[in-house]
């Protein structure tokens, strides 16, 4: 017994170090990136508020740029609306809406109050929360393309896992061929992501567009992601494609949270059949 006590007296610092090291490594590796983000929920309220004040300065500086962007988008939407109206006139007698008036996707406008691009696991804080109808698992898009997935919400704020997160995989497809693969950020350049598992028979070309596949009901189908910058065979059976993002994640400001009316029903139905890697659950 006294030997044990002497041993403890002698090595208590080393023992404490090893115990704490074990604890921190266990915490790091046993929690998913999704759970890590959820833990920050209680600081979100405070932090989002303080940061919002701070960031408004930067937003003010970029106001002109943002306004020009919004105008362009507005014009594009107006044109699209006219085109659709025109088409509807011709199509109206023969088609009936499939689900009454309800829209499959609705968009909640939001602004970025905090955003990082310099880590391996990046997150984005938005100024919308539960009260605006945001819930974990919803997608986030900007005018240019897919941005991330909501992980945690408080009353007025929410945290999204950025596309620039090495732990996140997203189902994306090559628009021309509709073949889908798995999209992931390799963790280096904040403008480039990698699309893998594209089979060899698909004809790729530099400059082709990569879009969301819509398989996960988080994002609608065909949300733009980026263009192909290059590709190479990966292990002889599939292509590994280098994709340049449309989004500039360093200047993200106005974004939209995508609320899918079908997602809950679809998820419940698909649960036993698909173990989707890109649909976070609430556990």
């Amino acid at each position: 017994m006294s030997t044990l006590i002497r041993f403890l007296q002698r090595f208590h610092v080393l023992l404490l170090f090893l115990v704490l090291l074990g604890l921190s490594l266990w915490l790091y590796f046993s929690t998913s990136y999704y759970q890590k983000a959820q833990l920050g929920r209680w600081v979100l309220q405070l932090y989002g508020h303080v940061h919002g004040q701070f960031m408004s300065l930067g937003q003010y500086v970029r106001m002109r740029e943002s306004n020009v962007g919004l105008r362009h988008e507005n014009i594009a939407l107006k044109n699209e609306l006219e085109r659709l109206r025109n088409r509807m006139q011709w199509a109206a007698p023969t088609t009936t809406p499939m689900r009454g008036d309800s829209l499959a996707y609705t968009y909640i406008p939001a602004r970025v109050v905090n955003n990082t691009v310099n880590r391996q696991q990046n997150h984005i804080t938005l100024n919308v929360g539960q009260r605006d109808g945001v819930a974990p698992g919803m997608g986030v898009v900007s005018d240019d393309g897919a941005v991330g997935i909501i992980a945690a919400v408080s009353a007025h704020f929410s945290v999204a896992i950025s596309l620039l997160n090495t732990d996140m995989k997203l189902s994306a497809s090559h628009r021309r061929s509709r073949v889908f693969g798995s999209l992931r950020w390799p963790g280096f350049d904040y403008r480039r992501v990698r699309l893998s598992e594209i089979p060899m028979h698909v004809r790729l070309a530099v400059g082709d567009t990569v879009v969301t596949s819509g398989h996960s009901a988080i994002f609608p189908r065909d949300v733009p992601i980026g263009t192909i910058a290059g590709y190479e065979l990966d292990g002889g059976s599939a292509y590994r494609v280098d994709v340049v993002l449309f989004d500039d994640f360093r200047s993200l400001d106005y974004v939209y949270v995508v609320r899918s009316a079908e997602a809950p029903e679809r998820r419940a139905l698909e649960l036993p059949y698909f173990n989707e890697e890109n649909s976070p659950n609430d556990d």
Binding site: L21, Y28, T31, K36, V43, R119
Partner: peptide, 11 residues
């Protein structure tokens, strides 16, 4: 907790 990286900075 602030950086959503539980365990990383602690280690």
């Amino acid at each position: 907790v602030f950086m959503h990286s539980l365990g990383l900075h602690a280690t």
